[in-house]
Simulated scan of single mutants.
Amino acid sequence: MIGLLSSAFVLASTLAPGLATDRTGVRWVCLTTALLAAAMFLPAWGRLPARATLVMVPPGLALIAVHNTVGGDDPYRYGVFFLLLFVWLGAHHPRWTSLSAAPLALVAYTVPLLLLGHPAAAWTAVYAVPVFVVVGEVIAARSRALGRANAELRRLAHTDPLTGLLDRRAFTTSAERLRAGGETGVLVAFLDLDGFKPVNDTLGHAAGDALLQRIAAYLVSDVRSGDLVGRLGGDEFGLLLRGTSAADAGAVVQRLSAAVLEASPPGLPVGASVGLAHLDDHPDVEAALRAADTAMYRAKRAAQARSEAGAAAAAGERSTP
């Protein structure tokens, strides 16, 4: 875009009297600059790293030098176009790129003036090129800081602030992306903690938060690199387990329950009720989550029934003479 604007500005300057000694030559420079700038919009550039665009710097400097030769010897006018080049370098490339381009800029700035017999004007490079470099590096530093801030905002917008896991929206979006990609064999696990309230009541909410963070870390370390873990809200977690068959379901439940138990504080064991649903069996992600949620509550009720039955049996044994 900077190249297109520069070529448009230079083209407009040929309409003013006395600003170009060779209007035809300047217009050819403008056309070539516009074509090179338009080439940057080709999709192929999007598949290359940003540093690949640095191949455009030598042609850009050469075009400035040609413009200087055919367009007059005013160092201030074409100094503007050097400034635009370094603004581009600073805005779209890492720090120190402008500094590394300084020798090329110095040559492209001074040689045309010397060839045109204006050595005094060439001395402007002594202060002009350092100014270009400083401008480029300042913009690069600000762009880097802005990029880090934007990345942090994006991260905060898609992660749970307490655990650092995906939040519910990001979790469902990731699952939808897997569906859209045609991936099969994705198991959705809905995990709800059992016995979490006593931790808050006994040790305080800070201890409860620390437990959630610890459980989140255990779950992340327990799954494979391609799987995803999210906090769906409160003490509920969701997992996307890729390439998992129905035969693996029992092992998944045992593994997740063991991870939660291992993260429990001493004397206050926390369990987990886990419900599973295959993403392929449901029309959308929310439906799969609801099915896994329903399965989780069935597992929780079954565990409570077993616990109550065991307690009643133990009480009966104690009351037997």
Rank of each mutant, 00 (worst) to 15 (best):
L36M: 09
E183F: 12
G46F: 11
P283E: 13
L276I: 15
A145D: 09
T14H: 01
R318C: 04
R95F: 10
R155L: 15
M296N: 12
G233R: 10
A216V: 14
S221I: 10
T97E: 01
A16P: 02
A125I: 05
S143L: 03
A309E: 14
L116D: 12
V126Y: 05
V29T: 13
L187N: 03
T97W: 02
A309H: 09
V87M: 02
R290Q: 04
H67F: 14
L153I: 03
D73T: 12
V80W: 12
I64A: 04
L116M: 13
H118D: 13
L42Q: 14
A303T: 08
L11H: 00
G226M: 14
Y109N: 01
P75H: 09
D160F: 00
L146W: 10
D227T: 00
A315D: 14
L113F: 07
A295V: 08
L89R: 10
A105H: 00
L19N: 14
T184G: 07
L219N: 12
A50F: 02
L276C: 13
L211G: 06
R168E: 08
L289Y: 05
V111D: 08
D281R: 14
G3C: 04
V220M: 11
D281V: 11
Q254I: 10
S98H: 04
C30P: 01
A151V: 13
A122E: 11
V199A: 03
T184F: 01
A101R: 03
D74N: 15
I2P: 12
G3P: 10
L187M: 04
Y78S: 09
